[in-house]
Write a protein that binds this DNA or RNA. Structure first.
Lengths: 245, 245
DNA sequence: TTACAGTCTCTACCATGCAACAAACCATAG
DNA sequence: CTATGGTTTGTTGCATGGTAGAGACTGTAA
């Protein structure tokens, strides 16, 4: 049950603040185009099942079909679209079941990350987390939902980065991309009561990490993710109310 | 810490017995080509860092550069090659650190799978596992290393499938693809002593699952994966002795 | 009305030409 | 000998035309 440990440097942020920064193995243009297409799909203008033909996207973004094709393959693989060979590409509707599955994975990933972080010696992430949780508590008091959501996002990513396991970060990023569709719809999953509980859970996780207690940290984090995903799944099933453009 | 639960149907097996079966969203030709290129890379004829030019592969496999390009993107993303934009594609050497990171993830994934499986009601996987472990014990007595390796492979995949979480299976498959390079080199990681211990650990995992004890199952599985990966990482650092062709 | 067969259209898939970039090479000057 | 600049070569990246497959449609017959 013990873990060896190992390094890591950069990870992209998830959708909300996704800056067009270069990903490894892709040119900047490729990344930019990918982001534009992803935004289009996530924007909600296309309902699930809507076709995304290569030619349409090509003239929409004023490039040839080839780079579009590559971007679509990437998105397929992120789970946002479905490619039916020889037929076409379609916006994919994540089923409720898939969301549940992804949340199970999220719990596992973040638990691992917390555990790995707690196992490390001194790391600058600890101070960042301390500040983050303090700010979260203030934001919760002030009922600042947007600020709170941003801080939560930062909290989780800081722990992932702090785990110092690049492969974990890669898988986590994939996961979050797949959840992004859902997250855009049920934007602020946390209602006031939940925010209070959530803040407490963040504090608990941080304390365990500060105590260098990997088991406690993992446990606390899993509890937190479980609670928060149960909340997210509670009643608000994914609804896609975008115009069909 | 409780888990909801959820289904799953087909997963491809990992490298050794990788049959050219159709993957979702790809034509059979695409999958076949991908497998051929993957085999070429994994075959060891190209040392890490060796260039894999599109034109070369294109005439090697008698197709155009376009499908080759797509296959390479897929392999990049499996971690087997590195694409340097505008420069070329190169066989990638997984660092020791990456292997460690991957094993950490493996532990987490399989722990989750065991836990989810233990949580389910009656499932046919249980009988398969029972037979599998029994056969493993016989193979261990008979010093049948090859048979044992095959059974171990089956054991782990059966649990992943039994977890009934398709997204988990997808991520696990990616992970195992990334580990495949390493696994080809240190083929049979288990020496006789380790095999004995390993068999016992399998039995322990199975018992916990039969007892419907998710925590115990997760714990036992993580212990097992940890022990087995420590063994794999012990001294045999990846060596690439293939001819340069 | 329904079932089925033939056709027809729309789509991805693949091939190939062209352009632009990166890096290796060589020559020249300090 | 070293450093620097220009040239040359090899590679990907993008555009576009042809092809073949999948699915929709229509008409016909039961």
């Amino acid at each position: 049950m013990q873990h060896k440990l190992c390094c890591m440097q950069e990870t992209m942020n998830t959708v909300p603040g996704r800056t067009t920064e270069k990903a490894a193995g892709k040119t900047v243009e490729e990344t930019a185009l990918l982001d534009r297409v992803r935004k289009l799909v996530l924007g909600g203008d296309f309902p699930p099942g809507a076709p995304l033909s290569e030619v349409f996207l090509a003239q929409e973004f004023e490039v040839s079909r080839t780079p579009i094709r590559e971007a679509l393959k990437q998105l397929q693989h992120e789970g946002l679209v479905e490619i039916r060979p020889k037929v076409g590409t379609f916006v994919r509707e994540p089923t409720r079941r898939e969301i549940v599955e992804l949340f199970q994975l999220k719990e596992s990933f973040e638990g691992l990350a917390a555990s790995l972080l707690a196992r490390r010696g001194y790391v600058p992430e600890l101070e960042i987390l301390e500040r983050n949780v303090a700010e979260s508590e203030r934001a919760a008091e002030d009922q600042d939902a947007d600020g709170y959501a941003r801080l939560v996002h930062e909290f989780h990513w800081t722990i992932i980065r702090g785990a110092d396991n690049r492969k974990l970060a890669e898988h986590y990023e994939r996961l979050m991309n797949q959840l992004a569709y859902h997250r855009l719809v049920v934007r602020t999953v946390e209602h006031p009561g939940r925010i209070l509980a959530s803040t407490g859970e963040h504090r608990a996780v941080l304390t365990m990490i500060q105590n260098k207690d990997p088991f406690g940290a993992e446990s606390a984090m899993r509890n937190h993710v479980y609670a928060s995903s149960k909340e997210a799944l509670s009643d608000n099933r994914p609804r896609y109310g975008g115009s069909t453009n």
